[in-house]
Amino acid sequence: MDVQTANGPRSQVNLIGLSRADYRGNPTTLCQGCGHNSISNQIISAAYEVNLEPESVVKFSGIGCSSKSPTYFLNRSFGFNGLHGRMPSLATGALFGDHTLKGLAVSGDGDTASIGMGQFKHAIRRNLRLVYIVENNGVYGLTKGQFSATAEMGLRLKNQGTNPYMPIDIALEALVGNATFVARSFAGDPKQVKELIKAALSHGGISVLDIISPCVTFNNQDSAMHSYTWGKEHEVALHELSFVPPAEEIMIEYGEGEAKEVTMHDGSTVILKKLGKDYDPTNRSEALRVLEEANAQQVLLTGLIYINTEQPSLREIYNITETPLNRLSQERIRPSRESMEMVNGLMF
């Protein structure tokens, strides 16, 4: 990697010697101003800042505008763009290939909350090691502007009329389904998005990030709950969030009672600086309460809503070998010739 060139200045690299360019993807083909592009950029920044080895990440997505985005970041990672709503199963199987890998999935509100609700909830229940980002804009973009299941009741869309149904709350669904990391953010708040992604990458199980990501083409009326204007006016952050990678010392000092630290699976730390009230993200019933309250008050509550670092991950449940399964030799996966007689003896 180009740490130093003959004439030029030392280009900036992270602790593993990679520059930001090493985390980039192809140019986006989404609309200008799409919230998803902002999220892709924050994925790149977060990966760079936590010194992520691109080859240690596997990207997954389903179908939709959101699901196109994995080609816009981390070109040096493997990726699989699966079926509409069925990405979680693909990730579940793929991550067993090499358990040292981290999954990074991008889905949308249609991909997750409509066609993919079943697989979404079951991936959560299994706690696989996957960062599951939902780029939530309340609308189907790629098919040009139909209501999604997260669209608020009463939303009016061109050619669609008025949405008569109550919305699905993805963060709430994740929490009810026993997700071990639930966060909500807003694409218009890039710093928070980035810090949450960094924390999620350090989580040992599944982390669900419901990121409101306005669709500038089909659902950006000022009054719509998935618009930039509404989000900016109604965002209420639970806390100010900082992430400290395991190798770095905690430089920021907080006074007693002002901040809460959460130690992650890999030894890194998430520091939650209190805003107004003290919020404990390890308390699940409190998390459910604040989400319900935010829905009732029509505010966009953002931040790390819930975290549980105790739950075993899917890999731990299966007690598989230290050597990645996909590197096991024939000798280790084909029983011995001698065992054949024993097996025949087990038959009648």
């Binding site: 699989f80 069925r86 693909l90 199987g93 991550l95 079943g118 007690n319 598989i320």
Partner: peptide, 27 residues
């Protein structure tokens, strides 16, 4: 330690999705 994983999926579509994910990753 196990050199295998057997997983009961939520339906057949998820079952083959998982199996394809695993096949893709070299299992």
């Amino acid at each position: 330690k196990n050199t295998f994983v057997v997983l009961q999926a939520e339906d057949e579509l998820a079952a083959i999705g998982m199996a394809i994910g695993a096949g893709w990753s070299g299992l």
